[in-house]
Simulated scan of single mutants.
Amino acid sequence: MSKITEAAITVAAIQMEPKIGETRANVTRSVELLEEAAEKGASLAVLPELCNTGYVFQSRAEARALAEPIPDGETVRAWAAAAHRRQLHLVAGITERDGEKLFNSAVIIGPEGLIGRYRKVHLWADEALYFTPGDLGFPVFDTPLGRIGCHICYDCWFPESFRLAALQGAEILCVPTNWVPIPGQDPKREAMANIIVMGAAHSNSVFVAAADRVGTERGQPFIGQSLIVSHTGWPVAGPASQDKEEILYATINLADARRKRNWNAFNQVLRDRRTDVYGEMLGSDHMPGWY
């Protein structure tokens, strides 16, 4: 297990515009943005969902042709080289191929290489035609920066995702995402996705760094509005713009997610759970609890 520090770190949520099928150009651009984030002091950076390939596939054959193995694919090697060069931790969305299966995945990479992977549990719309639902649960990774968990996009709509990560000791949830417009959205209000991650951060006492993409791909628009949220639920950076590449920065102490979890003399959100009424691990008892 890595030695855990409690120093403040700078987190970067990188909002970018991948181009479908242009993997090498997308990865090159992502590395440029990682370099920029590191130059401005970031210790942890988050990139969008499927940012190496683009998102709107026309067929499973196209998705498979663009998918890569982890950790031996060209994309992970490029990100690992950047992480090593800049002494950076990063979380980034990638189209993963594992034998005959494809996954909408994210990699967690540190200066010494791959730390782990996460596979999207809750698939959205046409993703079900191309990807297998994630089979790794909601792992939490001990790093020198703190305890890092990961969700991808639609996972955030499920309270269980955040709760299971928090119960395993996550201090920050990194969210590579490709948020799309929600029907009925009032343009004068914050995006529904922002409201959801703010509420989940508050009700689980975890930081959230959500990196969205921008642009329109094969007719599908994406909404941007990346943000970084405190363990209190209030944004500490963003939301970003709806239509341009942008990097958000926030300097935070991940240990605050644990040290400042009490809301008053009586209430602490994870301690106050009524485990006599519902299961401590929400039916996922194979996951170790830590809180």
Rank of each mutant, 00 (worst) to 15 (best):
141 F>H: 09
182 I>D: 04
171 E>K: 13
224 G>C: 08
141 F>I: 15
145 L>N: 02
238 G>I: 03
215 G>S: 08
121 V>S: 12
203 S>N: 09
240 A>D: 07
127 E>W: 14
134 G>L: 04
117 R>H: 14
210 A>I: 04
164 L>G: 03
234 W>A: 13
135 D>E: 12
156 C>M: 13
214 V>Q: 01
149 G>I: 14
157 W>T: 14
146 G>A: 05
240 A>P: 06
122 H>M: 12
180 V>L: 06
172 I>W: 03
239 P>Y: 00
162 F>Q: 09
205 S>E: 00
188 K>E: 05
217 E>A: 15
109 I>W: 02
109 I>Q: 01
173 L>D: 15
241 S>N: 01
197 V>D: 00
208 V>R: 08
109 I>V: 10
107 V>W: 00
241 S>Q: 03
204 N>T: 03
101 K>G: 10
172 I>M: 06
236 V>K: 01
157 W>M: 07
210 A>C: 05
147 R>A: 12
164 L>M: 12
238 G>E: 04
181 P>G: 09
211 A>K: 11
151 H>I: 06
204 N>A: 05
231 H>D: 08
147 R>C: 09
204 N>P: 04
106 A>R: 01
157 W>D: 07
226 S>L: 02
173 L>R: 03
113 G>T: 03
143 T>I: 11
241 S>F: 00
203 S>E: 11
171 E>T: 14
150 C>V: 13
113 G>C: 03
215 G>P: 01
106 A>D: 04
186 D>R: 10
108 I>W: 14
189 R>Y: 09
138 F>A: 08
161 S>D: 00
208 V>M: 10
197 V>W: 02
218 R>I: 10
133 P>T: 11
183 P>F: 13
218 R>T: 11
151 H>K: 10
119 R>F: 07
105 S>R: 00
219 G>A: 02
143 T>Y: 12
232 T>E: 05
153 C>K: 14
160 E>D: 14
215 G>K: 14
112 E>S: 03
159 P>V: 10
130 Y>G: 07
214 V>H: 02
145 L>F: 11
113 G>Y: 03
189 R>V: 15
104 N>F: 06
